[in-house]
Design a binder for these strands. Sequence first.
DNA 1: CTGAAAGCGCTTACAG
DNA 2: CTGAAAGCGCTTACAG
Lengths: 382, 382
Amino acid sequence: MTAVPPPPGSTGWRREVGAERGNDSVTRIDDVARLAGVSTATVSRALRGLPTVSAATRRRVLAAAEQLQYAVSPSASRLAGGRTGTVAVVVPRITRWFFGTVVEAVEEFLHQAGYDLLLYNLGGREQVRQRVLRTANLHKRVDAIMLVATPLRPADLTALAELDLPGITISSGSTVPGWPCVRIDDVAAARTATRHLLDLGHRRIAHISGDPTDELAFTTHTDRRRGYQEALRHAGLRPDPSLDMESQFTIAGGNQATTELLARGEPPTAIFAACDEIAMGALTALRDAGLRVPQDVSVIGVDDHDLSGVLGLSTIAQPAAEQGRLAARLLLDPLVAGTVEPYAGRVPTPRGAGADDATTSPPVILPTRLVVRESTAPPRAH
Amino acid sequence: MTAVPPPPGSTGWRREVGAERGNDSVTRIDDVARLAGVSTATVSRALRGLPTVSAATRRRVLAAAEQLQYAVSPSASRLAGGRTGTVAVVVPRITRWFFGTVVEAVEEFLHQAGYDLLLYNLGGREQVRQRVLRTANLHKRVDAIMLVATPLRPADLTALAELDLPGITISSGSTVPGWPCVRIDDVAAARTATRHLLDLGHRRIAHISGDPTDELAFTTHTDRRRGYQEALRHAGLRPDPSLDMESQFTIAGGNQATTELLARGEPPTAIFAACDEIAMGALTALRDAGLRVPQDVSVIGVDDHDLSGVLGLSTIAQPAAEQGRLAARLLLDPLVAGTVEPYAGRVPTPRGAGADDATTSPPVILPTRLVVRESTAPPRAH
DNA sequence: CTGAAAGCGCTTACAG
DNA sequence: CTGAAAGCGCTTACAG
């Protein structure tokens, strides 16, 4: 699908040309201009705070706009100015703690800066991802893009490059040429969690992470699994594939994986869950199996989900809101400063995946923190 | 603030008039028209699926659009057509389970219908609410508004009436004249929860709900408190003010209120929390106080939060996603059917709060369901 | 510092 | 069923 037709509409209604303009019509820029005794160009400049307007004129324009309850028409402004004042924010699932928290922080920042937030929730639907990333859907619709934990294939990267919009990624493995990235060090976080269990004396440590074929958080899965394995190896242990479960980043996924794990025979003495939601699912499954936490099995996750404190879940805390705020700032700063040209109908030479990496700065890594609660303790045998 | 200036921008860049138009410029409607050998009017009609285009012409236009990778410019289309293809969705806090779940369902429905979703997260900031509701901010920016659990004061209602946009509310107490409302019966839900505790034999039943002065979910608080009191009275009990706590609809709020409740002396044998998040906070506080659930204190909430199963929390389940989907459908149906005229610059006679109630249909009430888990049991004395 | 005028890229009566 | 032309309401070189 190339052309994106607007929603089928009615036959339409439009103010008749030359019709009376009493208080039956909404204020337009020329109404303000007339009242202020200036041209529309001056109104436009004054309202946007451009420096090339005298103080006295600006005052008159603002007063007139106030009096007439004038608000600029976004459509007209966008068409004429080439800027949309809108940012697309793409998340895998807004209902997951991390993404909801990020979006909340981003929303506040964007709206304070006067930008609108267009929300795209992939919801696990691959077709949505394709529509968002690969078609001209975002074209002319937003000034910038924020991708949160969105895995990108080569074809996606090409599509993004063709879009030629500024953007930023959060918690992303795939680097988009020219886009900054804000994230935590997933490998280190996993290492810390696993080491915490090792330090307590655990040796049979299971891992539950995402399905590697699941596109939703590909690199997060991989990185956290790697940290787990590195910590084990560093302790002289060989990762046991039968203790390494692939699942979903959800409570249900954690529950199911843990149940399956327990069915395999001798249970582990500890579980490192790749996120707190998985850990919560593990907690249920363990309880249902009659195993106590932490006496029989220790559990640790990653995130510091709002509920982790309630559950007494040990975890690796990551600053979700801060990642969102920082990313929003890094994204908007160049736009506001005017260092980025507004979209103007050019089609650039596609840069392609990794073609232009030289201009891409290294990811901004935010710190994580081990939070020890009641779900981790030394194994019983000790 | 009346005029909403766009974000300060750069000096601008624009394609030079008469400049070469090789593959250096993005496809416009006249490129498609030329390739298809028709006028731009016909391209516009064909792409939007209007019936007044012959099959053969439509085919040629679609092929040309496909070949040129044409995508309509939203700004131009909106300015010319008077429709934005965008819906504003206002929620108190996207991070809370109910709102995240609603937004996820709404997002899917809107995007499938070809609409964009502009997200407004109030985040407890009153100034944001005012900016969203009372200024011309939404004016000309969206085709419709969805307010989720947004309390409305008379001034807000006046502002919404002046906006003259179609809208819908979810879980709202304030009725907006002319707008449908989708919700559950909060009074009945609270009654059922309380009756469940009464049926188990409880008599000292505490309630933790929202702060009545908190604007964020005003009627939800009130309704659930009313259901609680009604159930008590129906059982011949007089509501005890010392067992009725005012708090926030959050885990922290529930925690704090419960702690305070326990400090007052003899603890209740059961707690009805106005939402699951409050209930989760209560769970922690009880545990910290050395009280067991349900042996010492029973706890029930409202929502059926994703984690309630994990925690074994009894609750009144409400269909959050379904409320979102249904509301989105009710909102879009008239727009898509064309029964609603596109925005066209008229300023209607403000209808004011409750002025036009006759045209407002009664709320659509979705059913709730008592889910008994492990957090409720008969009191020990029994 | 300000204004006249062109232009942004579409959609819509209107006429055929 | 289709096209020519006006118009949507702004912003921006350009000229002063």
